[in-house]
Design a binder for these strands. Structure first.
Lengths: 200, 200
DNA sequence: GCCAAATGCAAGTGCTCACTTACATATGCG
DNA sequence: CGCATATGTAAGTGAGCACTTGCATTTGGC
């Protein structure tokens, strides 16, 4: 009971994450989760007392795994701001696409599970944000970023562009351009918008 | 049957929209919708054969009402690009906030109802986008916007910033700034990013 | 006043869901 | 082997859901 065979618990968590992301929290059923985990439904309830307990466990599991994933990719920022932004944008965009169903579920049902949403945000997205802001700050010290804007807002606006682009591209409508072009344009406009102004 | 008393049908539609937005499509129940419409549940099924029919009717109702709302606010674009962007951003942001629960539901469950999602997007958001792009285009002809970027992408990136800001501000976390500052900064960065560059 | 249409009301049907109970089987460890 | 722990199987419980049926009541136009 203290340390159940990891493979069973992990298989359930993995299947549950997939089901919650794909079908929504309301829509996911313990039956299908157990089935897709290759496990009896009763076993699911023996590991996590109820659906809410399973959901909570999935959330900490998500935070942990994203934290591991993100530990390595603190890509070095060179002197070229635009190039750094481009690399950051491509990395982030790929991750957003990879987490698309989960992110959609969090947007849609996050307000009905504010506690979980907040911990996921604080433990998984805030660190990335903080690193990005810090990088912008050093770029500013190097004179590459204008002084009159809040870098937290700038960071949030930039990631929001990419996030919106992901939602659009995965939404099934055609908008007359391709993803790489979208990302590059975002980087271009944002970099130009951050650059020290001639004068106002 | 051909033209049922408008008030009943409309009350159901209104309550259904509210419930779908608040509780999600899966989460909303015909019982609570009928209750909140002040109508017997059977009446609901007599007007719309089933939950899916109700959902479809709600979608066309949404599109129609948004279309009416948007008919008047084609605010004039003066010569000052930044001022135009600021006004557009404030208007759009207010509308996004007003539609927050519905938008969250569409993000979260839209992929499971792609048909409805597409018509809502095509009939309600694309017109706004097209007008915005057209305005950017005339600004470009006036020499206020650089030539080397796709205005469709620019438009989508700009609205995505505002959309992301709305999600953030309504998400219950504090990010160290207030909404008007966020909107103004988005406008500032975007306007600077669109401005014709000195040279690259 | 009369009739048809719209609505209300009470009850019920069949289904699915989260969750439980009781018992059988496997697996690993001393 | 013997025992504890993890898992499987079968069956069931109570609740909520979408949706239906039959009948009573209102309402508005003729």
């Amino acid at each position: 009971m203290s340390d159940p065979t990891p493979s069973t618990r992990d298989r359930i968590l993995k299947a549950a994450l997939l089901a919650f992301a794909r079908d929504g929290i309301q829509g996911a059923t313990t039956r299908t989760i157990a089935q897709e985990a290759g496990v009896n439904e009763v076993t699911l309830f023996r590991h996590f007392q109820n659906k809410e307990g399973l959901l909570a466990a999935v959330m900490v599991h998500v935070v942990q795994s994203r934290h591991q994933d993100a530990s390595g990719d603190d890509a070095e920022w060179t002197g070229d701001l635009k190039q750094n932004l481009q690399r950051f944008a491509e990395d982030l965009y790929a991750k957003l696409v990879g987490d698309e169903p989960f992110l959609r579920t969090m947007i849609g049902e996050g307000r009905r599970h504010q506690d979980h949403a907040k911990t996921v945000i604080m433990d998984a997205v805030k660190p990335v944000r903080d690193r990005f802001i810090a990088n912008l700050e050093t770029a500013r010290k190097a004179g590459l970023v204008r002084e009159d804007i809040d870098l937290g807002i700038a960071s949030d606006a930039f990631t929001a562009m990419l996030f919106g682009g992901m939602l659009r591209s995965t939404g099934g409508c055609s908008w007359g351009y391709e993803v790489p072009q979208f990302v590059s344009t975002c980087v271009d406009v944002f970099a130009a918008g951050l650059a020290p102004q001639p004068q106002s």
